[in-house]
């Protein structure tokens, strides 16, 4: 994964738990890198190690860490200079989800080694959408839940997410049913 992802993990831990915890996570993960570079591709193992170590150091489940990370991701990328991109990618929660694949395709122009997941929407109604999530990476569904919660905050929309079908249960991909409502 690109350094931007690892930087987001670092930012999440430092801002919410403190620098000491981040140092402890790094030590636990056996990572000896002072500064991650956003545009540099790092082995996936580094990210997985960081998440695993964070779960141990912070006494959380890995799923909870991933969810927190997903929620933090939208905030972090906006902060890290991708705000306009996010802003231009949709003016509402559902429009953003519909453009998410386009966004990833175009992001790949800048990150040539990017292997992004696929997000596809179906059954779009005024207050619900079915999101089909496919990734060659395993076990990141909790991160999608966090991501959707983060987007809900970004677009000032309450979201209710339920995992309707799971890759873990033998489906080809994960499928979320999201009910949403714009806050007035």
């Amino acid at each position: 994964m690109y350094g931007l992802v690892n930087k987001a993990v670092q930012d999440l831990i430092v801002t919410q738990f403190g620098q000491d915890k981040w140092e402890a996570v790094k030590e636990k993960a056996g990572i000896d890198i002072d500064t991650f570079l956003s545009m540099k591709s790092y082995p996936d193992d580094i990210t997985y190690s960081l998440v695993g170590a964070a779960a141990e150091v912070l006494d959380l489940t890995p799923a909870r860490v991933l969810e927190a990370f997903g929620e933090h991701w939208t905030l972090y990328t906006a902060k890290e200079g991708y705000g306009e991109l996010l802003e231009m990618s949709g003016s509402s929660f559902v429009e953003f989800l519909q453009n998410l694949d386009n966004l990833h395709v175009r992001v790949a122009l800048s990150f040539p080694e990017l292997e992004p997941p696929s997000f596809r929407c179906s059954d779009v109604t005024e207050n619900s959408v079915r999101l089909h999530y496919e990734s060659h990476r395993e076990g990141l569904a909790p991160m999608v839940v966090g991501l959707l919660k983060g987007l809900g905050k970004r677009f000032d929309t309450t979201v209710d997410i339920s995992l309707e079908a799971s890759k873990d249960q033998g489906h080809t991909h994960d499928e979320f049913l999201i009910r949403f409502e714009k806050r007035t």
Partner: peptide, 12 residues
């Protein structure tokens, strides 16, 4: 998008 990446890279 490339412009955005360029700006972000420059900022970084």
């Amino acid at each position: 998008f490339l412009l955005q990446a360029k700006d972000t890279t420059l900022a970084e």
